[in-house]
Design a protein around this nucleic acid. Structure first.
Length: 948
RNA sequence: GCCGUGGUGGCGGAAUUGGUAUACGCGUACGACUCAGAAUCGUAUCCUUCACCGGUUGAGGGUUCGAGUCCCUCCCACGGCACCA
């Protein structure tokens, strides 16, 4: 341990405080603006490794960009509303505001000790009335334009705490606070209509240069599906059931219709067994989220006397009520097609409902594809699979003049029943005459080239599964014996044989389960009246038209429920008139302050309802009979626009100045945790888009780039947790080794541009301290460290130029690990120099490049080296680009792609020169064996490959 | 189950466009300094071999003068979604 990090850190902090180095002048036109944003923290009280990783490493980039001449906005604030403050208040009887304020003060000190170069003059705190004033104002704007609305909806309810929970407060179907299983309740709540923006939120993703996994997570969250509404009349009634389907092509396969228990028709339809239906509905509504997800066994009830009419063919089918259909998606009703949908298939099996196949899988035998110019013959075949239950083997034919193994197949004669013709073929080809049909596996279509007949076959196959009833066997004709031999194969042998059936992949899983399995892919329509023979994908919209349906698009995304029956949040700026109609609070009464005379022990009512002051305030301002809104806003609303407020945090007239937003938005780079790639990111995008439509924001998309960082694990490689006892407190390491050591360690641990997991390794931290000590030692060793005399050293100048380029480029890619590695390599080079050839010039360049990573030590060394002002005001080392290309390059010589040697050449040496030098190498000559290379591949400066 | 991302030494990882695989660091071994230890410094460290040769980026195949990188099949890990019709 060499340098005194405590003293160095204190001195550096004192120096920076006097220079106000990090305050961004938003109006500065002399430099390029760059908005670097990192997710603001919740003020929980103490910084943990996650905070260090988030802020210290992002700070490296902020400092790097400043040195590279950008006008960097690197702001910070606190996402200060939320449950922990309220829970602390309930537990310890303290004011959530006081609790939060104390935590913020403590965290500010820690952030400062980290060496983070945040611009504190832009600080925002979401629980500050000066901030939530504008959260409320924006909510009012959204309400005025119909983006916010009040409606009844199912919500999660904790029966013990007597309160509504946010989705994220429900963990495995239980309340995160008390562990009670949550229930669903219908309540009237405030929503933001994010679904109106679903399509734009989806489409814009294509153009955003974000990692695919982030975009895919958002796409999945939005969950777009295209389909149609179809109306099924209820027989003998004017009522109809509207269903949503993405597979109208399977309409002829509908054998029943299902309503969700919540569907309005369920209560009103004249079911003969009304009591039974009601009992089912009550029972399924009592089911907790947990029970529904744990037990996927399908249940349902059939309202007797009710039938639905298939709009395409007038067929009457039964109706069921079942909770495998969700009330909140589509129309809350589905047409069930058990032949082509897994869930319907499962339900139909349990309730013994008919399964009607209407889509036939189509396969082409790729080993014998149909040949052009050959006759096409359509056939109607049987395809019989026979299993012997005693031995669990399958009856197969090994062909004698063809390289085939097959099941038993054959043509169906005119007017013959497929089962009869299968039995006939089995008897003729193998002699077995006593087989029993076990399952009809449906219809397939296949085509191949029948080489023994010289024609293309296009077959419709009836696939039938039999079991051998007895070994009784007839004589097989000599003709058949000449063609193939009948053998019994185990399942493994069948799979290994590579059966000569194009549809084997579809049929075989059904055989193994001895039953038809729903076929969910596209194919050719069968049993579909006028649509028979058409491709399912192509015909689907024609079926919709024939059924009088309507094309439509559905989304998985629901409207955003923003009401919370909580105290510590932004009050929803709404009051109700004596008739109960909501009105937004006029702008002159904003901020609509959170009352302080509130009892926030959970009682089942929103805590604000206990405030006398709030009621009096409403009466005073709006009059007798007017009542307050008692709910507060989801904290995700607070954080959906904070990046705009950073641009103008003290503005009392507007949420942010339009010109500043024009100049600074979108955010250039947003760094955050992988856990926020769906909700927070989507909500922020939605907010920005909605404000854009209201001409309140200049951009549709708030974030040009988004980077998700990884997670720091405990030293044992497992996720840090108190119960595992592997929690690392970074402040202890900062105290022992210095903040710079922790910063460099976190930068070096792995790439910052991907969400991996990195263990906190004790030896690794110590080795970073060693690295910093070596740097200090080197500076001490430099005799002429304050000298202004520059001594040319070609190799070192080139090494500095390469490091300057590489570290900057790696920073742009958020790869600080390789940036640190470049500094280490450079240090290795510099350490090799004698004391006399070591100059202050090269060391100053080195220290400037070190400064983003180790800001305190770099400042200290900068002073030792006689640097002017602060190292954090020094420009990033410039270099002559010619230096990078200068000198000799190593060209690798390969013979037939194998490395045989290397030659030193000018980067622009001609091929002839390279070839001559290469042939002079003994290993190259011997590898060529004296022969002339037939081909020469030369990439100047890189490689010379000789192909014999 | 579906979608996405990834798989490289004992460990964290590097290889930016298809062009020297294993940079940088940890660990380990040996050596120097020391009465001794700690710290520090030096050397070695993918496998095989005394050395040359040969082999190696989850497994197998393909494209190419050349593949960690591109294509196909499979295995494994992590992340997201999941009764969404």
């Amino acid at each position: 341990m060499n340098h005194d990090h405590k003293k160095i850190e204190e001195e550096a902090r004192a120096k920076w405080a006097g220079l106000s180095l990090y305050e961004c002048n938003l109006e500065d036109e002399s430099k390029d603006p760059y908005y670097l944003l990192v997710e603001f923290p919740y003020p929980s009280g103490d910084l943990h490794t996650g905070h260090w990783y988030a802020f210290a490493v992002t700070d490296i980039y902020a400092r790097m960009l400043r040195a590279r001449g950008k006008n960097v906005l690197f702001p910070i604030g606190f996402d200060a509303f939320g449950l922990p403050a309220e829970n602390a208040a309930i537990r310890n009887k303290i004011d959530p505001a006081e609790w939060t304020k104390g935590n913020i003060e403590r965290m500010k000190k820690q952030l400062e000790a980290m060496g983070a170069s945040f611009d504190w003059s832009k600080e925002v705190v979401t629980c500050d009335p000066a901030y939530y004033h504008w959260t409320q104002w924006l909510f009012a704007k959204l309400f005025e334009h119909g983006v916010a609305e009040r409606k009844e909806a199912p919500v999660k309810w904790c029966p013990k705490d007597q309160t509504v929970l946010a989705n994220e407060q429900v963990i495995d179907g239980r309340c995160e606070r008390c562990g009670t299983e949550v229930e669903e309740k219908r309540l009237t709540q405030w929503f933001l209509k994010i679904t109106q923006y679903a399509d734009r939120l989806l489409k814009n993703l294509d153009a955003l240069p974000w990692r695919e996994e982030i975009k895919e997570a958002q796409r999945a969250w939005i969950g777009k599906s295209e389909g149609a509404y179809l109306d099924f009349k209820i027989a003998g009634s004017e009522e109809k059931i509207r269903v949503f389907t993405t597979r109208p092509d399977t309409l002829f396969g509908v054998t029943y219709v299902v309503l969700a228990p919540e569907h309005p028709l369920v209560a009103s339809m004249p079911a003969q067994n009304r009591a039974e239906v009601d009992a089912y509905v009550t029972q399924s509504q009592k089911k907790t989220e947990r029970e529904r997800s744990e037990n996927k066994e399908k249940t349902g009830v059939k309202p007797e006397g009710i039938a639905a009419v298939n709009p395409v063919n007038g067929e009457e089918v039964p109706v069921f009520v079942a909770d495998y259909v969700l009330g909140s998606y589509g129309t809350g009703a589905v047409m069930a097609v058990p032949a082509h949908d897994e869930r319907d298939g499962e339900f139909a099996k349990k309730y013994n409902l008919p399964i009607r196949q209407v889509v036939a899988p189509v396969r082409t035998d790729m080993r014998n594809p149909p040949q052009e110019g050959k006759r096409n013959v359509a056939r109607y075949n049987v395809f019989a699979i026979v299993r012997d239950p005693k031995t669990d083997k399958y009856l197969c034919l090994i062909w004698k003049h063809e390289p085939w193994t097959t099941f038993i197949t054959g043509g169906i004669d005119e007017g013959e029943d497929p089962v009869d013709s299968a039995k006939r073929e089995i008897r003729e080809e193998t002699g077995y005459r006593d087989v029993a049909l076990v399952a009809d596996l449906g219809i397939t279509k296949s085509s191949w080239f029948a080489s023994h007949k010289g024609e293309n076959r296009s077959a419709t196959n009836s696939v039938l599964f039999f079991e051998l009833a007895s070994d009784a066997r007839d004589e097989v004709s000599a003709d058949e014996v000449a063609k193939h031999e009948a053998v019994w194969l185990t399942a493994e042998a069948v799979e290994a044989a590579g059966m000569q059936h194009a549809e084997f992949d579809v049929v075989w899983p059904m055989v193994r389960r001895r039953a038809y399995q729903p076929y969910t892919d596209a194919g050719i329509l069968v049993n579909s009246g006028a649509f028979d023979g058409r491709e399912s994908e192509e015909a689907k919209w024609d079926v919709v038209a024939a059924a009088g349906g309507e094309r439509t698009t559905q989304y998985r995304l629901r409207d955003w429920l923003v009401s919370r029956q909580r105290y510590w949040g932004c009050p929803i700026p709404v009051v109700y008139d004596p008739a109960g109609k909501p009105h937004v609070i006029p702008a002159e009464h904003l901020p609509w302050l959170l009352p302080t005379d509130v009892d926030f022990t959970p009682t089942g009512e929103a805590p604000l309802a206990s405030s006398k002051e709030l009621k009096e305030r409403v009466t005073r301002i709006f009059g007798e009979g007017w009542t307050p809104e008692y709910d507060t806003l989801d904290t995700f609303v607070d954080s959906s626009w904070y990046f705009a407020r950073y641009l103008d945090p003290r503005n009392a007239e507007q949420f942010a100045d339009q010109n500043r937003m024009k100049k600074w938005l979108p955010v250039d780079r947003y760094s955050g945790g992988a856990e926020h790639t769906t909700m927070h990111l989507l909500y922020s995008r939605f907010f920005t888009m909605a404000l854009y439509d209201l001409a309140l924001a200049p951009v549709e998309e708030p974030f040009a780039e988004r980077f998700s960082r990884g997670l720091i694990m405990g030293p044992d490689g497992a996720k840090m947790s108190k119960s595992k006892g592997n929690v690392v407190n970074p402040d202890e390491f900062a105290a022992k080794y210095g903040a710079d050591t922790v910063r460099v360690y976190l930068a070096f641990i792995g790439p910052y541009n991907e969400p991996g997991n990195y263990p906190w390794q004790l030896d690794g931290v110590a080795s970073m301290r060693k690295f910093l000590d070596r740097i200090e030692c080197l500076v001490e060793r430099c005799r002429s460290r304050t000298s202004a005399v520059s001594v040319k050293n070609f190799d070192i100048d080139r090494a500095l130029a390469m490091a300057s380029k590489k570290i900057a480029e790696d920073g742009d890619r958020f790869k600080f690990n390789t940036g640190v590695a470049a500094l280490m390599s450079l240090l290795n080079e510099l350490e090799k120099l004698s004391e006399s050839s070591l100059t202050a010039f090269m060391l100053r360049d080195f220290v400037i490049m070190l400064a983003p990573f180790a800001p305190h030590l770099a400042e200290h060394l900068w002073e030792k080296l006689g640097g002017e002002g602060s190292v954090h005001q020094a420009p990033w080392p410039a270099y002559d680009p010619a230096l990078l290309a200068a000198g000799e390059a190593t060209v690798v010589v390969q013979v037939a792609g194998k490395r045989r040697g290397e030659i030193a050449l000018a980067p622009d040496a001609p091929e002839a020169e390279a070839l001559a030098a290469a042939l002079a190498l003994a290993p190259v000559a011997s590898a060529l064996g004296g022969a002339e290379p037939s081909r020469v591949i030369y990439v100047p400066g890189r490689i010379l490959n000789l192909v014999p």
